[in-house]
Simulated scan of single mutants.
Amino acid sequence: MMKKSLAEFIGTFALVLFGCGAAVISGKTPEGSAAGIGLLGIAFAFGLSVFVMAYAIGGISGCHINPAITISMLVAGKISAADAVGYIIAQFLGATVAAGVLYAILQGHLGFELKEWGLGSNGWGPGYLGEYSMTAAFIAEAVLTFLFLFVIFGTTSKFGNSTMAGAAIGFTLVLIHLFAIPITGTSVNPARSFGPAILAGGMALKQLWLFIVAPIVGGVVAAIVWRGLFEEK
């Protein structure tokens, strides 16, 4: 159990550090020009993080690195409650430590200022990226998490190709980010939202509830649908 939890800690740490780091450091140049990696680059940073960690820790913990996935697997009967609790604690800790490391690095940049929704935090409404409504944000996060979990269940089942599961899951996350970055910055992962929000405070922390509730709702529905309609008894 200790090895599994540590693997989840490291995997979630890597996801938040690479993904959020790409968004706030490499997303644009210091001068704000278009020479940065942009939306496509940020999407690939998150997707490739999951892709590589799936092969690094998949054999140890299954590479959930996302409380919504862990809860969904619990509902589907694929993980014990004890393991789920350990996973979730490790995921939140990993994300928070990663956000702290990212903050420490950013403080070394001349003129750095922690702004509203800083450190790659998720959000919605006036002042945040595309300024979408709370309803739009909730629908996007719930539906996209459902689709994400459906791909995970499908590729890791006997119907899928287990050797390609990491690639399929990683590229699905890329697609999700390409769609949702302008809406919410893309969470589909409560831990990924928790770490940056805790340090950024302000609106990021006030709006954190949506990025915990919506992905869990989407994940639970995916587990129920998969278990009820697709999984052979």
Rank of each mutant, 00 (worst) to 15 (best):
residue 175 L to F: 09
residue 13 F to S: 00
residue 144 L to D: 00
residue 16 V to A: 07
residue 142 A to Y: 05
residue 153 F to P: 00
residue 123 G to T: 09
residue 33 S to D: 15
residue 91 Q to L: 09
residue 34 A to C: 06
residue 115 K to W: 00
residue 177 H to N: 14
residue 101 V to P: 04
residue 76 A to P: 06
residue 200 A to E: 07
residue 60 I to F: 10
residue 52 V to D: 00
residue 212 I to H: 04
residue 81 A to G: 07
residue 130 G to K: 09
residue 82 A to R: 14
residue 180 A to S: 15
residue 111 G to P: 07
residue 141 E to C: 02
residue 186 T to R: 00
residue 216 I to E: 00
residue 130 G to R: 03
residue 142 A to L: 11
residue 95 A to E: 03
residue 132 Y to V: 11
residue 94 G to D: 13
residue 120 G to L: 05
residue 125 G to V: 05
residue 30 P to A: 09
residue 44 F to W: 12
residue 88 I to E: 03
residue 53 M to S: 10
residue 39 L to S: 12
residue 84 A to W: 01
residue 156 T to W: 04
residue 19 G to I: 13
residue 107 Q to L: 15
residue 182 P to F: 04
residue 39 L to M: 14
residue 126 P to Y: 05
residue 175 L to Y: 01
residue 149 L to N: 13
residue 202 G to F: 02
residue 179 F to V: 11
residue 14 A to P: 00
residue 127 G to R: 08
residue 128 Y to I: 01
residue 57 I to G: 00
residue 203 M to K: 15
residue 57 I to V: 15
residue 87 Y to Q: 02
residue 11 G to I: 07
residue 21 G to V: 02
residue 179 F to P: 00
residue 153 F to T: 03
residue 192 R to S: 01
residue 39 L to N: 10
residue 34 A to E: 14
residue 197 A to K: 08
residue 154 G to V: 03
residue 129 L to I: 14
residue 36 G to V: 13
residue 190 P to W: 08
residue 37 I to S: 08
residue 173 L to V: 15
residue 44 F to N: 03
residue 109 H to T: 15
residue 114 L to E: 10
residue 222 A to K: 09
residue 159 F to R: 15
